[in-house]
């Protein structure tokens, strides 16, 4: 099976600080659904950051979507990121843009026409049950609603890989359910590879998944 992510002896740290992930070796198959768990501060977000190139491997090798992440060039990284959808714990929506435009961001970046983008955005806003909020600005929405917007944005450009960092960390039940359903839907219907960092694997999950756990700087799979 094709690998979307391959890590070999991957070590991660922030500049001169101590090593956070040390010599991790794992791989993630295309089209799989992966959960990453671990105690607070164990390095879950750090690992995810390395997957979208926000931090560089300090040791070992990391390949994402066929692209080597060690010493990656800016243009290559931009190219890779146009095929990844990220959901952050703090949403990272653009405050001065409407909900509609926020969802459109990946489509704007990929250079889709207005017509195609608008149609896609309407469809996604329907999926996250936010059509009626399209013209509002992020600060006018609740946390749960904002995360649903972020979820719609992550799906907008049909990415090959979705990275989500505690997407339902502090959301209401309804919003959590919408988000889990969308991640499952993308995985089953579009064969999108999903990597989710979470404290707690929801019992409602209906797809086969892999589970990695981070402890003391090591990443190991839980069968």
């Amino acid at each position: 099976m094709d690998k979307v992510i391959t890590a070999e002896n991957l070590s991660l740290s922030y500049k001169d600080f101590e090593t956070i992930i040390s010599k991790a070796t794992f791989s993630i198959d295309a089209g799989s659904f992966v959960f990453i768990t671990g105690a607070s501060g164990s390095g879950k977000s750090t690992l995810l950051k390395s997957l979208y190139g926000a931090i560089e491997p300090q040791g070992g090798q990391l390949i994402v979507g066929g692209v080597k992440m060690n010493k990656i060039s800016t243009s290559k990284l931009n190219f890779l990121r146009r095929h990844i959808g990220i959901v952050f714990q703090d949403y990272k929506l653009i405050k001065e843009w409407t909900i509609e435009k926020n969802v459109m961001l990946p489509l704007i970046i990929s250079g889709y026409t207005k017509d195609v983008s608008s149609e896609q955005v309407q469809k996604l806003l329907g999926h996250v049950k936010l059509i009626h909020q399209a013209g509002k600005y992020p600060p006018e929405l609740s946390g749960g609603e904002q995360q649903r917007v972020a979820m719609a944005r992550a799906l907008a450009h049909n990415p090959i890989l979705i990275l989500a960092d505690e997407p339902t960390g502090n959301l209401d039940e309804y919003s959590s359910e919408v988000i889990w359903n969308l991640l499952e839907g993308a995985n089953t219907q579009l064969k999108t590879t999903i990597v989710v960092v979470t404290h707690h694997i929801p019992s409602s999950i209906n797809v086969p998944y892999k589970h990695f756990h981070i402890e003391m700087g090591t990443v190991h799979e839980i069968a």
Binding site: N78, K92, I94, L105, P106
Partner: peptide, 16 residues
């Protein structure tokens, strides 16, 4: 800065 860094996370080139 915030908007520009968010756009970067989705692969927007510098000019965009």
């Amino acid at each position: 800065a915030e908007r520009m860094s968010i756009m970067a996370l989705f692969g927007a080139p510098v000019w965009l």
